[in-house]
């Protein structure tokens, strides 16, 4: 079992490694963005799936990481720091916000928690709009080709892939460690967890910090990958896409967020776009995505991957 899983993972990596050689640059570009999107999804799953705190403001971390690195490196506020400094800075600032939102979440539950976290990113969007001289408003701004990882799209693709692999490995190590066990204890039964001596407050906050750090790093990577920053990185559609991905793959399963993230990103940016063009009615890729989300919530709350897996294994027996 273990060995065959390693083989499968190596195979996946091998296929992705040759993709830029066989496909067009716009497909490679999209796949690179999908790698980063997977990190958004997995980092959300750490808090939502492992500690059970449904944070609808995950895009705050992504956006903060992105705008931090964009502002510090592009010269818009008079600074031209090298990107290997600004990207971790983005992650670090996102981490601080993670700590803060984590503290808020300690006080709130259910609807109230969801409401506060859902509104937070909207405040950032509105601030970006008001101070458009700095943040570029709803048009966003470009950091310029010279501030990308490389002018060559294949190089940027490999950097994004490496980032994803390292991040996933790091987060996997965390959830499989003793700390991950404690996260799940907090999710399953707070009182029991407290009774066996787990410091709930501490572990919730740690989970938020980890989630925010990786999301912030991923947001920052996005900027230097796609060369632009905009309020879409804070916005509700991105949040819904992340949630949809994790639900599709299976929440709290780790691999679910990885597979779901890929599947949904590629579906939205490639398959749905083709489908929208092919259909006789004027629909957009976003519209199809929301229909999918509604259907999934209603029909398969336990995750599509689990269903698919059950289906495939029942066939082979």
């Amino acid at each position: 079992m273990k060995a065959s899983l390693y083989i499968a993972i190596s195979l996946v990596i091998a296929v992705f490694a040759v993709m830029p050689l066989i496909s067009s640059s716009s497909i490679a570009y999209m796949l690179g963005l999908a790698f980063i999107f997977v990190v958004y999804c997995v980092s959300w799953d750490i808090v939502a799936g492992y500690t059970g705190q449904v944070n609808l403001g995950h895009t705050v971390f992504i956006g903060i990481g992105a705008y931090t690195t964009a502002l510090l490196s592009s010269g818009r506020i008079g600074m031209h720091l090298p990107i290997w400094i600004t990207i971790p800075t983005g992650g670090a600032i996102a981490l601080l916000f993670g700590l803060w939102i984590g503290v808020i979440c300690l006080r709130l539950k259910g609807y109230y928690l969801a409401l506060v976290t859902a509104v937070l990113p909207l405040i950032f969007i509105q601030l970006a709009n008001i101070f458009s001289g700095i943040f570029g408003g709803y048009e966003g701004f470009s950091v310029g080709l010279s501030r990308g990882f490389s002018p060559d799209i294949s190089v940027r693709y490999y950097i994004a892939m490496l980032f994803m692999l390292v991040s996933i490995a790091a987060m996997y190590a965390i959830v499989k460690s003793r700390m991950g066990v404690k996260f799940r204890a907090v999710r399953d039964d707070e009182e029991l967890a407290e009774a066996v001596g787990i410091n709930i407050v501490r572990y919730k906050l740690i989970a938020f910090c980890i989630s925010a750090f990786f999301a912030g790093m991923a947001g920052a990577m996005t900027v230097h990958y796609r060369l632009t920053v905009g309020v879409d990185l804070f916005d509700i559609p991105l949040m819904l896409a992340v949630i949809l991905s994790v639900i599709t793959g299976g929440i709290g399963t780790f691999y679910g967020a990885v597979i779901g993230g890929f599947a949904i990103f590629i579906a939205k940016n490639w398959f749905f776009r083709m489908l929208a063009d092919a259909l006789p009615v004027p629909v957009s890729d976003d519209l199809l995505l929301y229909v999918l989300l509604i259907v999934l919530i209603l029909k398969m709350p336990e995750g599509v991957v689990n269903r698919l897996e059950a289906f495939l294994s029942s066939r082979s027996q």
Binding site: P237, L240, D286, Y290, L293, I294, I297, L298
Partner: peptide, 26 residues
Amino acid sequence: PVRKYEVMVILITLAIALLFEKILLA
């Protein structure tokens, strides 16, 4: 169908809101 799960209620109504926005836009 999902009203017992508060988060699901929010997600599905939010998705409906965005869906209608896109339909009106189309």
